[in-house]
Design a protein around this nucleic acid. Structure first.
Lengths: 195, 195
DNA sequence: GTCTATAGCCCGATAGAC
DNA sequence: GTCTATCGGGCTATAGAC
């Protein structure tokens, strides 16, 4: 009987896809340094040589899979901006952002991962800050980004009680007032205590 | 002339202190995996053998310096609890918590560091949740911890615009209303949008 | 084209010289 | 007590066998 009816090119593409999926999973679980080409190859049921042949280096393989999705443009009234940023967080806690988690897990120990996360956050931050004509816009939008990152880390990477399993709507409901007060609240806040 | 008038024990203690300071700095800057005993020894102006002699292993040296300060007990009315948690964040952004940063930078790639950070956060979270007789107390206090961690990461490890250089009081002022609304706000929030 | 073998490097840890 | 030399092992990346 004839051999597999799968064209060589198709076979090759499938192997590459298996490698990419294995890399995404292992980099997200163990970070850049502790993920080895050997382990990726084993998980993808190939061998290390082929991984190198297809992706050139461990560094380039990582760059292929560790991407942080860029935000959609943010604009409108302060109320709308706050809701858009909250919706952005809502997406992240609704579907596990596997590729971004690979970048986030490695960002403290791998400069390329840090750059990827930092630049994605700064782009969103600066764009949002552009809609706010207040002197502390950078701080306000930086805080929103930091809170969003903290929530993602707490939910997926630390698995904190309550946060790990909470329904997305419950998380966004509890954070709605925070996002609004940070984006367009009085700096001294209605809740400021003089005590 | 006589040699150094420094007793042996004193000399030894000084060397150990130099090693600990160098380890704290390098682990905080580069994380566990990328910090080598060789580099610590060089930074402390000794040699690797002596580092191993004094601290037994890289793992034990790391455990000595990567500690997260435990919180003070939290109690009182919901308003007071929110203010105490906010004050806790205020301390962290007032003085750079070097030892905690070493643990945080390594928490995603080194299990012992993850345990240290996680347990410190869970202890504070559970203690705070104990003061709140609501079903979603875990989620509320988990969010507070996540926001606090995100703020520390954004300020010291990512150096986000606005957050990196902001005066501590400005940060806590912007977060005050958030902490109050998360700790004791209506779950559906006064700002809930039905759109 | 696919895979095996290995070169070359750096590491943590140890043994023993001084 | 302090330091040097080295062991054993894991890694990325490469060279070459099939």
């Amino acid at each position: 009987m004839p051999a597999a009816p799968v064209p060589r090119a198709e076979q090759r593409r499938r192997t590459q896809d298996r490698i990419l999926a294995a890399a995404r999973k292992l980099f997200a679980e163990n970070g850049y340094d502790r993920t080895t080409i050997r382990a990726v190859a084993a998980a993808a049921k190939t061998d290390p040589g082929l991984v190198m042949r297809y992706f050139e280096s461990k560094e380039k393989l990582f760059a292929r899979i560790a991407v942080v999705d860029r935000h959609e443009p943010v604009d409108g009234t302060p109320e709308q901006v706050a809701e858009l940023l909250l919706a952005s967080l809502g997406e992240k806690v609704t579907a596990e952002p596997a590729a971004a988690l690979a970048a986030i897990r490695s960002m403290f120990t791998h400069p390329e991962a840090a750059k990827e996360v930092r630049e994605a956050m700064l782009a969103e931050q600066r764009q949002a800050a552009g809609t706010m004509p207040v002197p502390d816009a950078d701080l306000r939008t930086g805080l929103i980004g930091a809170l969003t990152l903290g929530t993602v880390i707490g939910r997926y990477l630390l698995g904190l009680d309550g946060l790990r399993d909470a329904p997305p709507e419950q998380i966004t409901a509890l954070l709605r007032e925070s996002f609004h007060s940070i984006v367009h609240g009085d700096p001294d806040g209605p809740s400021a205590r003089s005590e």
